[in-house]
Amino acid sequence: MPRAYHFHGLKLESDFHLPALAPWDGPRHARCDVVVRRAAVPPRLDAPDHVGPLFQTKGTSEYLLALPGTGRILVRNGDEVLVDAEPDADPTPVLSGSLQAVLWHQRGLLPLHGSVIVVGAQAIALCGHSAAGKSTLAAVLAARGHAVVADDVCVIDPHETQVLAGCGRLRLWRDALDRLGLESRALERAARDKEKYVFDCGIRSAQERNRLTAIILLSRRDSGAVTIERLRGARAAGALRGVVHMRRPASALARGPDIFAGLTRLVAGGVTVWRLHVPHGAPSLDEAATLALGVLEA
């Protein structure tokens, strides 16, 4: 029996349990926008344009992932994910992370690798590579009463300079939960082989879309103070390119020119871009959260 989820304003139905998404709470008979199905998936695409060691693409709308240990997954047209899982494999992590970004690329939107908080009606994206501390910082900001509307995949409509709101769920590793003083016992695991848990921040954004005001690029530092600097112009656009989620598959799907145009539009349209250097350690997280909120005054 497929389950229905709220997926950044869309209704998603899945044959797989996706704990990082909130259950669908819209009209019961609403049309389904995206489906995730168990199905037979061919080992290769017919006449692909790009063939890499892990994935193939054809045109702008077909992406096939062949991942030993997980299975084959076909993402097409931005509305269909077919999963041919290996016996005993758990495809949940890739369905909850990397592949969502591919799907948004196919829908012509701009997914950045980041989590998003909303302050008032203004969205701040916290971006960076894996292990940069995006979700942890979002959790600190949630503890200050701000809504979390995306974790790991920040979905931007660059034409409207808006972020599409998802649910307030973060995927946090056990050591982040410990640092934040949160108990993991009652939380659901995000993946069965990892000490990574789904934490519902409990605060929803009032709007389905929020104006993107600032993008903060997280950068880890070995020591010293928490600092923030503003990036402008080409430097800002260049830095943003580094946090486009699933950039290589997007490029294979011929999204490069649109991504460039979208990033340029964001910077030219007044979205401020910042680099936040955060040294390791819990005390610096509070300071980082304060500096992150300070960008709204710029």
Binding site: G69, S96, H129, R247
Partner: peptide
């Protein structure tokens, strides 16, 4: 980790 993600076009964090 980041160089792996960038080269293969998938997040290592999603893998075993």
């Amino acid at each position: 980790r980041s160089a792996f993600d960038e080269a293969l076009g998938i997040a290592a964090a999603d893998l075993t």
